[in-house]
Design a protein around this nucleic acid. Structure first.
Length: 284
DNA sequence: GAGAGTGTTGTAAC
DNA sequence: GGTTACAACACTCT
């Protein structure tokens, strides 16, 4: 989501929205006023908390647009006719695969004053857009736990908090109210790197392991961001190509393959209700 | 063709 | 209060 945020900011900041087409009401929480409330405004900033994007508008300091992509949400950006196309950027929509735009899964289309368009696609309709005031934004923000990427992130404090929980370490790391921004992929990678079994109880994780988990969480997110993210590009490439970081994943989606560290076959089982990949030899 | 699985999380139930 | 199971949905893979 951080890579999506950066790419969106690069594209839409300062641009005026001249039209909003809502193609599926559920995406905007069934708000029939959504389009009217966004039309005519300019994006001032794109922020993020956990996996939630927060857009603000110039000269409308009390209005915010929250966007959650959930499982299958994705943004595509197409420059206007009068703007030179800067190819190669992952946010640029790829045309020529036969799809017309908007296509079957396009839920919302923003049109900018310069003719550019931002498409929000979401096959499974889990994602949403929602307009909120500052007070509601505060409540939403308060529901998120610490950000591993924040400068204030403290591994020692994190270790204490993690060990105070009464659940599996996998469930704890997926809990956005505890630590914000880790999804199923990155949790599996963090636990592989720190050699901790996903179903291990948090109160049985050693202090050293807990701190290592904190350090690894931050490092893995930073590495993934540096490579352009995992999820976003995966979404785009439907013909066997993958996002850059996907090639760096040690265990996620590699059931049966050799552990990069010891060669043992990676296994998969359900932990905390999620498909979980791990090395039965390395992780204890 | 039926059934399981999919990157997330809000909600109901324990 | 904390934690778990499941639903929301549409598609792909067994």
């Amino acid at each position: 989501m951080e890579t999506v945020r950066r790419q969106l900011a690069h594209r839409v900041l300062g641009k005026e929205v001249v039209a909003v087409d809502v193609l599926h009401l559920k995406t905007v929480r069934h708000s029939r006023r959504f389009a009217a409330r966004v039309r005519g405004r300019r994006f001032a900033a794109v922020d993020r908390v956990g996996k939630l994007l927060i857009f603000s508008f110039t000269e409308t300091p009390e209005l915010f647009l929250l966007v959650h992509l959930k499982m299958t949400g994705q943004f595509f950006y197409r420059a206007g006719e009068d703007v030179s196309f800067s190819g190669g950027h992952s946010l640029d929509a790829t045309f020529g695969d036969g799809d017309e735009w908007p296509h079957k899964h396009t839920r919302v289309v923003f049109t900018f004053a310069d003719g550019a368009k931002l498409y929000f696609n979401d096959m499974r309709l889990f994602g949403y857009m929602r307009l909120v005031d500052r007070r509601t934004l505060g409540h939403v923000r308060a529901g998120f736990g610490v950000e591993p990427l924040a400068e204030s992130f403290d591994p020692a404090d994190f270790a204490t908090q993690l060990r105070a929980r009464r659940t599996s370490v996998k469930a704890a790391l997926l809990d956005q109210s505890f630590v914000a921004g880790l999804g199923n992929i990155y949790v599996d990678e963090v636990l592989w790197r720190t050699k901790v079994r996903p179903w291990k109880r948090t109160h049985r994780v050693t202090r050293a392991q807990a701190q290592a988990i904190a350090v690894a969480a931050r490092a893995i997110l930073q590495e993934a961001i540096a490579q352009g993210g995992t999820t976003f590009q995966y979404f785009r490439e439907t013909n066997g190509k993958h996002g850059n970081f996907r090639d760096s994943l040690a265990v996620f989606g590699r059931t049966g393959e050799a552990c990069p560290r010891c060669g043992t076959a990676i296994r998969k089982r359900v932990v905390a209700g999620r498909g979980t990949h791990y090395c039965p030899h390395c992780q204890r």
